[in-house]
Design a protein around this nucleic acid. Structure first.
Lengths: 220, 220
DNA sequence: TTTAATAGTGTAATAAATACACATTATATT
DNA sequence: AATATAATGTGTATTTATTACACTATTAAA
């Protein structure tokens, strides 16, 4: 007999100019062989915060990811075996730093794989609804803000940052105005390093200055 | 045997320059005789949206209130009879239009009563945490926005509106600048009516022009 | 008629957002 | 060596929004 409720994790990343979501291929009924966002039952005496990390690790191999609660979903018909409430969490991770580590630890999932957000397979349960809600949250709460930088490599170009904003907001931005804005925020540190392996002028790399970031954010 | 989870409702209002929350006095164990936000168990085959309205009505006598999901709370120790997850919802209502209707329908609660948000009694379960989370949500998402107007009477003065903003933001605002801002938004309709029963110059009344509001909001 | 209490109003200064186009640089190709 | 390609990096003028700031007008009550 399973416990009362499950946790499901929307794990987003950014690559190739597109938002990516990490899906797992189920190895158990219901929805065996379907793609789903990683999730599982919470243990009886387990705090949700602990469960999120455990489940995320077991289903994808990923560890130490910061997750925020998104919402609870409890549609009567969402689960074919009876109404099971799930609490969805949302996390942002850097695509490159994580690619090699993705592999389920448990046998409950067959594999874990990134999918571009606008090219998703059919999904188990109400997981498409959960993903859509995540995208809404992303759009409303984090443009020009904190956790955004979890989606980029540690060192990134301003063009990458702009593409990320564009992907989230669903519209193009003016390059000069974007850079001006970024500058006034004042918490990006330019490095003495440049992009490598491109067949055109290499762009300067930047990283988030966390010290300054927290100063700026602490105020408003 | 109760179903898997509960719903709790944070019902906020505004009166006397202060945010108010509707609490119910429990008539059952655990926490018998304690004040709590109204809530109860969701039925096995009941959609959450339906349960919210049913529970809110049974516990407070209020009907037809629009509620937004706030978050799920599931601390292992939050409920003395074992971990019970609750999904908290948040609603805004007009203080005056509702005062007389507040009276529990079920006997599960003894009475329902408004409390000023900064003068709360001890609360059952983790309900203080839930209320605090509501206030954070209110602050982050609705200044100069929609559901705010649910907290005011249909016809209100600009000073009332300003006091509401100040209560939510926890700081004072400049009267002229506030009115200028409100004006540029353009969805408040001035009426040919004035405040009554005050012993000083009566203020003009305004109401929300929902048509214009949706136009403005629809864009950004 | 005076007092008390709140309503209602404008301007100047600063900061932020927008619109808009071209020279620069690194690599690859011939 | 010269050229083509593809993306980087930069400035100014205009409009819009935000901030700071103080007095007169109106009403009811004393």
């Amino acid at each position: 007999m399973h416990s009362q409720f499950t946790i499901d994790c929307v794990i987003l990343s950014f690559d190739n100019g597109t938002l990516q979501v990490l899906l797992t291929e189920r190895n158990e009924y219901p929805y065996k062989d379907w793609w789903s966002i990683p999730g599982y039952f919470v243990d009886k005496y387990e705090e949700m915060e602990d469960a999120v990390y455990r489940i995320c690790h077991e289903m994808t191999g990923l560890k130490n990811i910061y997750m925020d609660q998104l919402a609870a979903f409890a549609g009567v018909k969402r689960h074919p075996e009876g109404r099971i409430l799930t609490v969805a969490y949302l996390a942002f991770v850097q695509y490159d730093s994580i690619k090699s580590k993705i592999k389920p630890v448990s046998t409950y999932m067959k594999q874990a794989k990134w999918f571009a957000i606008n090219d998703l397979p059919d999904l188990a349960f109400d997981h498409l609804e959960i993903i859509n809600k995540s995208l809404g949250r992303l759009k409303n709460t984090i443009s020009y803000s904190a956790s955004l930088y979890e989606l980029l490599p540690e060192k990134f170009t301003l063009t990458q940052l702009q593409l990320l904003h564009e992907a989230i907001l669903g519209k193009t931005l003016d390059k000069r105005n974007f850079r001006k804005k970024i500058n006034t925020l004042g918490y990006l540190k330019p490095l003495d390093e440049y992009q490598k392996g491109v067949s055109y002028r290499a762009a300067k790399l930047y990283k988030l200055d966390k010290r300054k970031f927290h100063k700026v954010i602490g105020q408003g």
